[in-house]
Amino acid sequence: MEKEISAQQSLEIIEGMINKAKNKFSDNSFLYLLWGWVIFICSVGHFIMIKFSLFNNPEYIWAATWVAVIYQIIYLVKQGKKETVKTYTDEVINYLWVSFGISMFIITVILGRGNTWITLYPIILMMYGTPTFLSGVIMRFTPLKVGGICCWCLAIAATFTPSLYVLLLLALAVVTAWIIPGYLLKVKYKKDNV
């Protein structure tokens, strides 16, 4: 049987339900950590191999990013099956990162053809900053905003840094933009969903 409700009760139901759905984000800390650690290991590894002349083609280490892409696709398919709700904010954030991925690919092609690899790293750093900062704004999560700003500062710093050491700036950028916020996000998600 349906219960009679008063106007006041109606208002309480609406408020309660809207609160249950608002600020509900999927736990995407795993992706920040995956990419944070992959880029960190690649950039530091690349730096060490050049510095100590360990291999002829140290740049091959970046092939690890393709493994990460495949792993991410498998993870997202599995995760998508587990999700019971889709929010607009999740969708906006997803498309933000998809457009970032596409832009990164295009930038690499453009700079690769022009043989201007020297400018690649500052541009990559600048590109890292945008989706990171905006995700922080959308999710109202300050560590991501700070991480995004750090990437932009490092992009400027990279233009004044010898190219070998820019690899270390890249590692620093992913620590501030993805690794630290990734762990903080994990803690926040656990706390919000107790």
């Binding site: 219960k3 409700i5 109606s10 809207i18 509900k24 019971t84 969708e91």
Partner: peptide, 25 residues
Amino acid sequence: SQLRLAVVSLLIGVKEAEFTFIKEK
């Protein structure tokens, strides 16, 4: 009506939700 209003209020803030999510909330 209590439950129908709750369902609509919940759906107004999300793109889509599964039956289990609505049931839980």
